[in-house]
Design a protein around this nucleic acid. Structure first.
Lengths: 127, 127
DNA sequence: GGTTGACCTGGAGTGCACTCCAGCTCCTAC
DNA sequence: GTAGGAGCTGGAGTGCACTCCAGGTCAACC
């Protein structure tokens, strides 16, 4: 299967502009072109785009994604380094989740506080 | 207790520049000044700064923090709306955590994949 | 009374990740 | 054969959240 840029955008969740931008900065390889010179994405291209969106969602900066992309380009010999990048990134994602969870507790506390305030207010009215 | 801007920065985890920036954009009330015209933060000021850092950590955009700050300024009557903001924000933080966890699974999968590759590689050598 | 260091102000600059635009080409359908 | 729509390029513009800077003030210590 091949996909037009619009289809690739829809399936990856990236915008058309972002797809071209990623290509420009070397985050994705230039895809094939059809007879009219238009981009024609393969299933492999799509898979890589989807994986990139995962990295992006987890907050990996573009320059690190680019490093990863370049390593990937150099083949199996770089698998160790790539694994290390993912390993470290996994750790940072776990930290981020922990951080969010700790902030969530503060939020819970605050919301409870407002509920108590409301309660007091109601009591004030009914008293 | 009162705190110089440097102390407030250290205790809140924000930079001195960020403290002044937050004041400029109306995210924090202008603190008291000492005899020399320097900012003098109270414990209450500090508490608000710390809370702001929690909201920031959880990804609340500044314009929303500002809305919250303005409501707070208007007193108890706005408690309902403030609670609602926190409520909605809590939901978005929960969603964000879920999203990260789902991406984490993809990462785990990929890392396992690299481990298998390595394994294959080692087998290839020893075979 | 001179130097040092923290702090002040208004405004300019930065880095990131897009996002938009003008002016063009190409294919399709009428 | 022409009108419309998708896609093309290089480059400019955007929004966010800071961050830095020049040039000045102020209090304290030597």
């Amino acid at each position: 299967m091949t996909y037009s840029i619009a289809q690739a955008a829809e399936r990856s969740g990236l915008s058309i502009d972002t797809l071209r931008y990623y290509e420009r900065i070397g985050l994705v390889d230039p895809p094939a072109r059809d007879s009219g010179g238009r981009r024609s994405y393969s299933d492999d291209d799509l898979g890589w785009l989807v994986f990139l969106t995962r990295l992006r969602t987890t907050g990996m900066p573009i320059r690190m994604m680019r490093e990863y992309a370049q390593l990937r380009h150099r083949g199996d010999a770089t698998a160790g380094r790539r694994k290390q990048i993912l390993f470290e990134h996994r750790a940072s994602v776990r930290e981020r989740i922990a951080e969010l969870q700790s902030c969530l507790e503060v939020l819970e506390y605050k919301i409870t506080h407002y509920e108590q305030l409301e309660h007091t207010f109601v009591e004030g009215i009914t008293a």
